[in-house]
Design a protein around this nucleic acid. Sequence first.
DNA 1: GTGTCTTTTCAGAAGATTCTGAAAACATAG
DNA 2: CTATGTTTTCAGAATCTTCTGAAAAGACAC
Lengths: 188, 188
Amino acid sequence: MTTEESTPIGLPEAQDRFIGLWGEMGSAWGIPRTMAEVHALLYISGEPMNTDDVMARLRISRGNASMTLRTLCEWGIVSRVHNRGDRKEYFRAEQDVWKLFATIVRERKRREFDPLLDALRACRTMTEQPSAGGKRRIDPQSADLEAHHRRLDEMLGLVRTLDSLSERVISQGGIGFRTAAKLLAKVS
Amino acid sequence: MTTEESTPIGLPEAQDRFIGLWGEMGSAWGIPRTMAEVHALLYISGEPMNTDDVMARLRISRGNASMTLRTLCEWGIVSRVHNRGDRKEYFRAEQDVWKLFATIVRERKRREFDPLLDALRACRTMTEQPSAGGKRRIDPQSADLEAHHRRLDEMLGLVRTLDSLSERVISQGGIGFRTAAKLLAKVS
DNA sequence: GTGTCTTTTCAGAAGATTCTGAAAACATAG
DNA sequence: CTATGTTTTCAGAATCTTCTGAAAAGACAC
């Protein structure tokens, strides 16, 4: 064992490890593993990479790399970079983790919470009695229906809370979240 | 159109709608659709059901129902109920949505955040120089390594915050969350 | 013990998701 | 315009996840 070996484990290996972890994490949360891995690679390497770099490093196909990078750009956590005198397109990951988190929350709120909220409200409306005139009818099944409505309302309350909570998180580009986290830490 | 049709859309249809929404939601968040659906059924119907009830209502196999119900019990959001004089086992979903949420957060923290945190720390350690004696060596690659460490540390900070945040959410069986949500709402 | 009812298990089937690769489209230079 | 380099697309392949169903195990009564 020579003393010349300065680093027992190299940087690329450590990067790979991180990429693997991030990929695992992603797939547990409903994000395609490769997409999380591409993001992790761009984040941990710090500098912009082009499609071929990504393909080579992660051993994925051109099509996959292209689609995945495009999706990451659409999410807003990766941006396209152009270099003068180079026709290739480069991609850089957002380096501020708080902004990253805020962006992810924003997207998931938009894609999942908001539609769910609408759908739940519609679901609630489905079974509401059309209150005909001033006549309040006593429905024999009203006990079940009432209980059903109560359950739906409780769930709506939870989802609404989460939705408005995420609103806070994403405001001011994530700065709000740092503050909120600190604030929460004080509540014992 | 007769006025005798008191409910334009019946309760079972509304339940199905809710079950569908919940299943959709689940699969977007990395939870098997059927598992979310079984939970939704138990929640929205309110009363305990046995395996055959669930199988019939959701048109799933016995094996699937058995495994799914077991997993839901392991998660702690469904509990087993026994009725005197009936050998069948019944299952009831937690009816307090805040407790439900707290339980889900607890499980995901335990299964995903905590291990991720450990792994990230290990990843950070991988590339740390074994500070040999008092001799501080100037590594030519130290700039890259430092940047790498900085990025890992930032990510660790984010994950650590989320982890301790979830700690707050799950404390006191979810009561902490209601309070926290209210508190957050005040921060504009 | 045997008989009956219920639950669990898991190998293979079915289904859903993700990935590849080659062709088409696009872009720029000359 | 053609030639060259780059990106996108998408049908089919590969892979991964989830589900089924039948057999085994378990539980209780008698």
